[in-house]
């Protein structure tokens, strides 16, 4: 699978959980790997690239960390959108 396609799957996976469950990195890696047949390492690498450019972000709440889709406010602050 192309990296871009895999990243779209990752994005969709995170979006589907929005407001329902706080996803940890591991949840995403396991879930997307099972859905796509890609190796956990490949999913992790693709996900990390998304985090590095602000397509996904680490979040923190309820005493633990998770991965989420960033808010517009966050992206504006990071200069990712004008």
């Amino acid at each position: 699978m192309e990296v871009k396609e895999l990243q779209d799957k990752i994005y969709a996976f995170v979006q589907a959980a929005k407001g329902k469950k706080k996803l940890k990195e591991k949840d995403i890696i396991k879930g997307v790997s099972a859905d796509t047949g890609e190796t956990p390492d490949a999913v992790k690498k693709a996900m990390r690239e998304m985090i590095d450019v602000g397509r996904l972000m680490y979040s923190y709440g309820g005493g633990s960390s998770s991965v989420e889709i960033p808010s517009e406010e966050y992206l504006r602050e990071k200069g990712m959108i004008k």
Binding site: I51, D52, G54, M57, Y58, Y60, G61, S65, E68
Partner: peptide, 17 residues
């Protein structure tokens, strides 16, 4: 307030909102 969602790009740690 409880900590918030802030940090530097790419990191998930080091900053506590």
């Amino acid at each position: 307030k409880h900590g918030g969602i802030v940090g530097v790009l790419g990191y998930g740690g080091g900053v506590i909102g």
